[in-house]
Each structure stands twice: as C-alpha cells, then as structure tokens.
Simulated scan of single mutants.
Amino acid sequence: MWHAPCVKWHYDYVGPAEIRGQVRVGVRGAAITSSGDLEAWLGGLPSGEREEPCTFVIELDGTLMLASRHSEHVACAAGEPVLSAGEVAFVREGGRWLVSEVSNQSTGCCPDVTSWPAVESALERAGLGHPGTFTHPMVFRRCTACHQRNIVKDDFYVCAVCEAPLPRAWNVNQPDEPV
C-alpha cells in the first residue's frame, strides 16, 4: 500500500474567491496513475496543446491530476487541498514518457519548493521519468503588512506592493484577505 511522502502540510486554495466560485462540484483533472493514462490524456488534447505544459496537482492521496494549461489549479483539484501544484511538460524519449519541465508555479495554491517529494512520488508511481527536482522552482511568500502574495526573485525578500520585508519561511496559508 502506498503512503504519502513526508510533507510539511497540504496547500489550500488561497487565490481570489471569484476563481474558486467557478469550480464545478465533482469536476476535476484527469487522474494519471500510469504512462498509459498519460498517453490517453495527451491524445485527447487538441494538437496545439499537446506540446504545452499542463496544469497539475497532487491530491492528498498522492494521485497526479492533470488539466489543460488554461485550467486553474483549484478546478483541477475540484476545490480540495493538494500536496503540490504547478505546471508540467512531458516528452517521449525511447518509448518512455519523461517530464521535461516541472514547476510549482501556482499562484492559487502557492506551494513551497519543499512539496517536491509529493510530486516525485506521484511521477514515480505512474512510471514517468523526471528531473529529480523542480526545474523552475518558485518561492512564494505572503506579506505580513499588506497580505499580498509575492513571488520572491533573486533571494530578494521584499514585498512588491508595499516594500515591507517578507518572511524567510513559507507562510502563504491563508485565503486572500481584503487590504
């Protein structure tokens, strides 16, 4: 039996309420538990979308879920908390599906880079090769002064909105708050 990897926490949706309001009950991304699932899902996409990265979430049970890149992470997860979220691209090499790029880029869930073990575990269980880490890691922090979500770039922990210092530890665990 599979057990969830040791992760610090799960990630709730923290983005705008109007986006959460668009989630349809019972509608979620496609579960990918094997390379056959991935092949079938990719085959069902319009040809122009097959080469694009797609939206992914890792559900609390460790299942990799995929949706079109034009989908919101909260919709892919049917509004439920996740172990990780981001974007992923696949390439077929030597008859095997591999992850060519993977990030934790989800401004709706803002997962920490420490969520990688959940992604790695889901990819390995599905038999999908991967790069061993996020190829495009994103560092998210919430400003404690103005409550805005920020992406930290170049190790510059300063709010892009109010210029207050940002915490070094991940803290994006509250829904958007009115400012």
Rank of each mutant, 00 (worst) to 15 (best):
W2Q: 09
A4D: 07
P5N: 05
P5M: 05
V7W: 01
V7G: 00
K8Q: 12
K8R: 12
W9S: 12
Y11M: 02
Y11N: 04
D12T: 04
D12P: 00
Y13V: 08
P16N: 13
P16K: 14
A17V: 11
E18I: 13
E18N: 14
I19G: 03
R20D: 06
Q22H: 12
R24P: 01
R24E: 15
V27R: 15
R28H: 12
R28K: 13
A30N: 10
I32T: 01
I32F: 05
G36L: 11
G36D: 15
G36A: 14
L38W: 02
W41A: 10
L42N: 07
P46D: 09
E49H: 07
E49D: 12
E49R: 07
E51T: 11
E52R: 14
C54S: 11
C54V: 14
T55C: 12
T55A: 07
I58L: 04
I58W: 01
D61I: 07
G62C: 06
L64M: 06
M65G: 02
M65E: 03
L66P: 03
L66W: 07
A67Q: 07
S68L: 06
S68E: 09
R69H: 09
V74F: 04
A75Y: 00
A75W: 10
A75C: 08
C76D: 07
E80A: 14
E80G: 07
L83T: 04
A85F: 02
A85S: 11
A85N: 01
G86F: 06
E87L: 08
V88I: 15
R92D: 01
E93P: 06
G95C: 13
W97S: 05
V99N: 04
S100Q: 08
E101I: 02
E101K: 07
E101Y: 04
T107H: 13
C109D: 03
T114F: 00
T114Y: 00
P117G: 02
A126K: 03
H130W: 10
H130T: 05
P131I: 09
T133M: 04
T133K: 11
F134T: 00
F134G: 01
H136K: 12
M138N: 10
R142E: 03
R142V: 06
R142K: 10
T144V: 11
C146D: 12
C146H: 09
C146R: 11
R149S: 14
N150M: 07
I151V: 15
D154M: 07
D154Q: 11
D155R: 06
F156D: 13
V161H: 15
C162L: 13
A164F: 10
A164K: 08
P165M: 08
N171Q: 05
V172W: 10
V172E: 12
V172A: 15
E177H: 08
P178Y: 12
